[in-house]
Design a protein around this nucleic acid. Structure first.
Lengths: 227, 227
DNA sequence: GCATTAAATAACGCATACGTAAAATAATGC
DNA sequence: GCATTATTTTACGTATGCGTTATTTAATGC
């Protein structure tokens, strides 16, 4: 879980492969359920197989793909059942973070990025700019977990978020206006500010559980069985 | 997170490297804080650098080591602060599992491995056989998470357990007799059997929090700052 | 046409070679 | 002796080649 920069000057080829592949997977450019030979990916990325294989090993460890010899690297789809799992893990670890952040009695200064994200969410909601809202939402969650101070939890949450990214992007315009998300986040922030760990945790848990139920319902309603 | 067997007949060299290195790390044969060149590890494992590198990438992703170019692969020590993080993550995800298992209304048959592990823990306690107790304890936790039915949570718990394995082994004979652990586990099992999700979760959380506090106290008391 | 066997092709894991950059060592100057 | 510079050595990331094995294709027999 340590972050490692292999070259001081610029990232290594394997690192670039990892980033490119991750991006392509999250964007759906490497579509869920598709198979790709190492050689194909190597051509596409304009490098040899060696760094591609290394990137694939790593991304497999993060649950984005499955290395299947002779059948190709399979981009893992995310089913509603997968969403359940992912959201359960996210809920637990983010709720832990909310509790820890509230317990920590952080100065207002430390809450600034969280506050800014929430403000941006509200601006985006008022402008009905879903893309901007999603970006701010992501930032809010990221900051929340960072404030929780558990680096491992942070990395796991990041991993889970990656797994769920495509589904969230796909359903972004299908879901109702995120008034409730904004309100929930505001309540969580207020509780953290007030040092009320119990309330921060409870409000955040409720938020995540609502989001989970809504997202899974959307997937089922629209027959999106494997994103 | 998918498990992949690369060769049907027997495991690949890279897979063997991964297993060997993991075992050596957990056993302290590759001691915490030490650096090892890829070439050294390759010699030791009697293979070329290629599978060793692959194994190291993977083990880095699981938090057991850090790949540092030109300084060697560093075996990551676990400090009391690391223990805090790890136990917090474990606590949240195992508590989720306990709740889910209780909610699932599982037949007695499904609880058999959990029950067996607990019985073995009690046998070991009566015989003052700490090694046997630790083994049964590990099994209990593993089964509990498996019963929770969240594959991702299970993999994360496994990853965290690996990170904490050396410290647990080192402190196994320092800690008080694990009467309380056995009692806690019995209470968790009973709550699951009764379908009492709230109680299963609460008892398990309390158990993990007690264990965390005790372990960290042991580390500090014995000046074991990086295991 | 279908099943079986044989042959060809291709993907893979791995070992090795190589260019590059980092680290270590040696040489030089004050 | 210490700082600086030059040279040598070494570790690394990567590309490539190769033996093995899995898959595909072709040939054969009924």
């Amino acid at each position: 879980m340590a972050r490692n920069v292999r070259h001081q000057a610029s990232s290594s080829t394997a690192q670039r492969a990892q980033t490119r592949l991750r991006d392509m997977i999250l964007a759906g450019e490497l579509a869920a359920g598709t198979d790709h030979l190492e050689s194909e990916l190597a051509e596409r990325l304009e490098m040899s197989r060696t760094p591609v294989r290394e990137a694939c090993v790593l991304l497999q460890g993060r649950g984005l793909l499955e290395v299947r010899p002779r059948k190709g690297v399979r981009i893992l789809p995310v089913s509603p059942a997968d969403m359940e799992e992912i959201y359960d893990v996210l809920t637990e670890l983010e709720t832990l973070a909310a509790r820890k952040a509230a317990e920590a009695g952080l100065p207002e200064r430390a809450l600034a990025p969280l506050t800014r994200a929430l403000d941006d969410m509200e601006t985006a909601l008022a402008a009905d700019d879903r893309a901007a809202w999603a970006d701010a939402d992501q930032r809010f969650h990221h900051e929340l977990v960072r404030l929780g101070g558990n680096r491992r939890a942070m990395d796991i949450v990041e991993m889970m978020s990656d797994q769920v990214a495509r589904a969230r992007q796909t359903t972004l315009y299908m879901r109702p206006a995120p008034d409730r998300s904004n309100a929930d986040h505001r309540a969580v922030l207020d509780a953290i500010r007030a040092g009320d760990a119990g309330r921060a945790a409870a409000r955040h848990r409720a938020h995540r559980q609502y989001a989970k139920a809504m997202l899974i319902e959307l997937l089922k309603t629209h027959r999106l069985s494997n994103l």
